[in-house]
Computed example of a mutant assay.
Amino acid sequence: MAIVLGDNRYGKAENRVVRVDREGDEHRITDLNVSVSLSGDMSDTHLTGANDKVLATDTQKNTVFAFARDGVGEIEDYALRLARHFVTSQESIHGARVRVESYPWQRLTVGGQPAHHSFARSGGGTRTTTVHYDGEQAWVLGGVEDLTVLNTTGSEFWGFPRDGYTTLPETKDRILATAVNASWRFAGDDVDWAGAYDTALASLLDAFGGTHSQSLQQTLYAMGSRVLETVPEIVEVRLSLPNKHHFLTDLSPFGLDNPGAIFHAADRPYGLIEGTVLRDDAPAAGPAWS
């Protein structure tokens, strides 16, 4: 029986990059978490320990910071620049994957006026991108993570199978809450990234708030479909929606009723609903999701 080396990659993960743009008195923050992963002709280092084809992960880290020096711009463009650089500058590197998470900051208001240099982290979800480049073609994913949303009504769950282990009561009115983790695949790499992100995010929120939900699966499909309807450059949407359960609290031991007002927000366990919505003529994903 022969033993061979399979697929492999290496890189520098979670480089925390903060750029401050100082235009006059008004500052802007770009707060990123950048991970690089490279693949290619790496057999020697695995089999013999030779490192002549290994671009040090410390060098990768330095490149991430150096490329932010002259401006980040849209995170998709920044990731594309990095991925192309690693492949074109190193003969042994045949593929580069760059993932960027962009954390949102909101300008504070001081004395009734927008502050020039004071910010607070906002809770509008974390913008993400993942880029893969193989020397000829680039694949780009966009997305958002930890976007917490909640409907206080307009959600039902009933008609499900019941067996000897089923205790969950049916309901025609419940709180529906989730932390949206969404990724979407672009058909190309020449896109108005900011416009696509803003429209996709607004579409997710509009579909969540505007869908009378019989199940979280139905809401997932509505959210993915709305993104595809509004952003023609996107061909596939993947969603992961943890069901953040809110259970009506029994106040009867205290002689109190509970007219749908007091809930226990459960931490775990939680239902996890995942699915993909895509165009029926979507091109092959290639290595985009791998």
Rank of each mutant, 00 (worst) to 15 (best):
A207N: 02
D146K: 09
R127C: 04
L248F: 00
G11R: 12
L38Q: 08
F86L: 08
A196K: 02
V140W: 05
D21V: 13
Y221N: 11
T57F: 11
L201A: 03
T88L: 11
F208K: 04
S203W: 03
Q106Y: 05
E274F: 00
N33Q: 12
Y197N: 04
R9H: 13
N15V: 15
D41V: 06
S35L: 08
I175W: 07
A282S: 12
P232G: 05
G24T: 10
G154W: 08
R84E: 14
T199I: 02
N62D: 14
V20C: 10
Y10Q: 09
L201E: 05
L204E: 01
A187E: 13
I175E: 04
D77V: 08
T48L: 12
Q217E: 15
H27L: 14
T126V: 15
L5T: 09
A266K: 10
L147P: 02
V20T: 12
T59K: 07
D77K: 07
P114Q: 04
H245E: 07
F119S: 07
G195N: 06
R162M: 08
P283Q: 04
W184M: 04
R99Y: 05
R22V: 10
A79N: 05
G271P: 07
V72F: 06
G159R: 05
L80I: 15
D250R: 07
E74Y: 00
R97V: 04
A13G: 10
F157V: 09
P283C: 04
I262F: 11
V227N: 02
V87D: 05
V235C: 11
G260D: 06
V100E: 03
G195V: 09
E145D: 15
V235F: 00
P161D: 13
A196G: 08
F263L: 05
F65R: 13
T167P: 00
R84D: 02
D189A: 15
G143S: 08
D280H: 12
Y133L: 09
H46D: 07
D163G: 14
V140L: 07
T199R: 12
D206N: 11
E136C: 06
I273P: 01
E274H: 01
F160Q: 11
G95D: 10
